[in-house]
Nucleic acid binder design. Sequence first.
DNA 1: TCTAATTGATCAGCATACTGATTATCGGTA
DNA 2: TACCGATAATCAGTATGCTGATCAATTAGA
Lengths: 152, 152
Amino acid sequence: MADIANMPGHLIRRFQQIAVAIFHREVEAAGFDLTPVQYAALECVARAPDIDQATLAGLIAYDRTTITGVVDRLVAKGLLTRKVNEKDRRARTLHASDAGLDVLRRVAPSVEAAQRAMLKGLSEQEADEFLRLTRKALGAVNDLSRAPLRQR
Amino acid sequence: MADIANMPGHLIRRFQQIAVAIFHREVEAAGFDLTPVQYAALECVARAPDIDQATLAGLIAYDRTTITGVVDRLVAKGLLTRKVNEKDRRARTLHASDAGLDVLRRVAPSVEAAQRAMLKGLSEQEADEFLRLTRKALGAVNDLSRAPLRQR
DNA sequence: TCTAATTGATCAGCATACTGATTATCGGTA
DNA sequence: TACCGATAATCAGTATGCTGATCAATTAGA
């Protein structure tokens, strides 16, 4: 364990770092300007219109304070709208714009390509096993971060 | 694949997010103020005294521009020294201070505990398999980020 | 019903991480 | 030797992510 290069934390960090680079490469090559978080948020809002920011944060496992900035930028790009929820004036209701839905539809192939590229070193069986083990490991530690995944 | 929650990129990001939270929890509980990058950098410099920043960045797979800030903070804490290399005045020679070596020695059990905690949902065989698959996947994509791992 | 605890959003401050640019220095070559 | 491409470090600017705090609005309980 003494070797940093083989510590789980270091391997996971490197994989995340490379996964983000691959995402950017694929998405930019297709002419889009969208980060991984922005994509996740946009996709989630498109799937659950009129969601509030706290619920969105829980569904994609991001911190609420991070989501505020992400939504700011998506609104600035015209991909999302944010309105005060009149039923609960603390909350902000999110809605994907037509432009947002259009971007989402057109960027999808690049996002899929990025997912495949990340695991290109593994056979199909190995990739499945990797994802299974990752999900299993995550299930045991989900509550240990400030931004746990919350199911629907 | 359509479901974000099961995309490789999303699973990897969540794992990294939680791994960092676990690292902080363990290290802070033991009374230390050290981030994962700071620990990796300090450990690497202790192992390879008089290393320069670019080589350090390659050995722990961090971007050079990130390492500048990380070293700034380690120097500010008195754990590292940074001197101009007189043989190559472009380079900065790094050296772990006595305080740095002491922190490294005393924080080690917490770092080990964090590594175990990250994988606590997996059996020993599963953890080994997870690490094997991660290393294999990483080997195929190492060069796709701006900060690839460079071996000794 | 009045108040206390909770919740949604935001902010300040800090530490990664990235891109692209700049500066200083080095090494090889005309 | 004078120059030119490469390299080490840094900087500016942007986007995550985190902690801890604040503010407004809602809900639950005495």
